[in-house]
């Protein structure tokens, strides 16, 4: 492969995108956004049994200004929605959101006057995690999937192109089970 073989040992070649992705994913600081039942499972993940520290994420930021991942753990009420958005706005870019549990993802079983039917009405969501509440292992899985996504995120013009392509693909997608004609 040419150049790599001529390099002295201790030097590796990669892309800027990969290096940035590695840096971003390896020290992701979640903001504590525990709301309901899922918050307890989120705290369990931080505990010794599941140990989120293995993925460099044990530092749950008390302030949104030092966090880049928001784990929305629980049902978001209409009263909480503006607070959630404010906290999201206070987080510095780049930032990611995991909607933990069905309530945060879609409103879940609480399809009523009080609950926002999915936190994606308020903030953009990167990972939807099902379960009521999801097991801690499921949250770990979601975190790893997010890490993978962050690692492979493109930058600049590539990113814009990626967004366009994804959008077109999603529009073309046909849904199984129920035909849409």
């Amino acid at each position: 492969m040419g150049l790599e073989e001529k390099l002295p040992s201790g030097i590796a070649l990669t892309t800027v995108e990969q290096i940035v992705g590695l840096a971003r994913k390896s020290s992701m600081w979640p903001a504590t956004f525990g709301l309901a039942c899922c918050a307890i499972e989120m705290m369990s993940v931080g505990g010794p049994h599941y140990d989120l520290a293995r993925f460099g994420m044990e530092k749950f930021g008390a302030t949104p200004r030092q966090a880049d991942l928001m784990i929305v753990a629980g049902r978001v009420s209409q009263k909480m929605a503006p607070v959630l958005r404010q906290i999201y706005d206070q987080m510095p870019e780049p930032k990611w959101v995991i909607a933990m549990g069905v309530c945060a993802s879609s409103g879940g079983m609480f399809n009523n006057y009080a609950i926002v039917q999915g936190v994606d009405h308020i903030v953009p969501v990167d990972i939807y995690l099902p379960g009521c509440p999801p097991r801690p292992e499921m949250l770990l899985d979601a975190v790893l999937k997010l890490h993978d996504k962050v690692q492979n995120t493109k930058l600049g013009a590539h990113r814009e192109q990626e967004i366009t392509e994804t959008e077109e693909r999603m529009l073309r997608r046909s849904l199984p089970l129920v035909s849409k004609d």
């Binding site: 709301l35 309901a36 629980g74 049902r75 009420s77 009263k79 909480m80 607070v83 079983m109 609480f110 399809n111 009523n112 006057y113 009080a114 609950i115």
Partner: peptide, 11 residues
């Protein structure tokens, strides 16, 4: 309080 009002009783 009320930031987690879920409407469980009504539901």
């Amino acid at each position: 309080i009320g930031y987690l009002h879920t409407g469980i009783e009504k539901n």
